[in-house]
């Protein structure tokens, strides 16, 4: 087997030597602009009441983390070495990826909860409609009066069946 060692060294060498401290100039600018834009968009969405405060937190934290990492060379270097990346840029991307994974997981958990609530609510609607129908049929009179009574004393429906 031919030795790939020198070739690999040749390929890796420059990259290792050039491992930059923090981000190169324009990448740093992009990261800073991106984080500020993210911050502004989140604030705007909360202002318009399109994003709930509880969900805004994770986004704010991300924007903040992005900003800090872009500005603080040393912190980004720590992250870079921690994940074993060569380029600081990759470290930043890696961080973003981890964040997105956490966010999706959070959404999946919320979805599970909402799915469950949705199911329970729909089942309850089906049962209540059935009870209202029974009340109307049982009491006669105008439908209007029956449904008013049903709305006024929902507990009565339960007791009637039991």
């Amino acid at each position: 087997m031919p030795s790939f060692g020198p070739i690999l060294q040749e390929l890796q060498g420059p990259a290792l030597r050039e491992a930059v401290d923090g981000l190169p100039g324009h990448q740093k600018t992009v990261a800073i602009v991106l984080s500020i834009a993210m911050f502004l968009v989140v604030v705007e969405l909360v202002r318009k009441r399109k994003l709930r405060e509880e969900y805004s937190l994770v986004w704010m934290l991300t924007a903040f983390a992005l900003l800090v990492l872009a500005i603080q060379h040393r912190l980004l270097n720590v992250v870079r070495d921690l994940v074993g990346a060569v380029e600081s840029t990759s470290a930043l991307f890696f961080g973003a990826l981890v964040f997105l994974m956490l966010l999706s997981l959070q959404f999946s958990v919320r979805l599970s909860k909402l799915t469950f609530r949705n199911r329970t609510l729909s089942q309850r609607v089906a049962l209540l409609e059935d009870e209202i129908d029974n009340l109307r049929a049982g009491r006669g009179g105008s439908d209007r009066a029956a449904s008013d009574r049903a709305a006024a004393e929902p507990r009565d429906g339960d007791a009637g069946a039991a």
Binding site: N118, R119, S122, A126, E129
Partner: peptide, 15 residues
């Protein structure tokens, strides 16, 4: 008993 939308076979049984 009518579900307002499809919930699945198991959910229907449970209703």
């Amino acid at each position: 008993l009518r579900h307002p939308f499809t919930l699945g076979y198991g959910a229907a049984l449970q209703t």
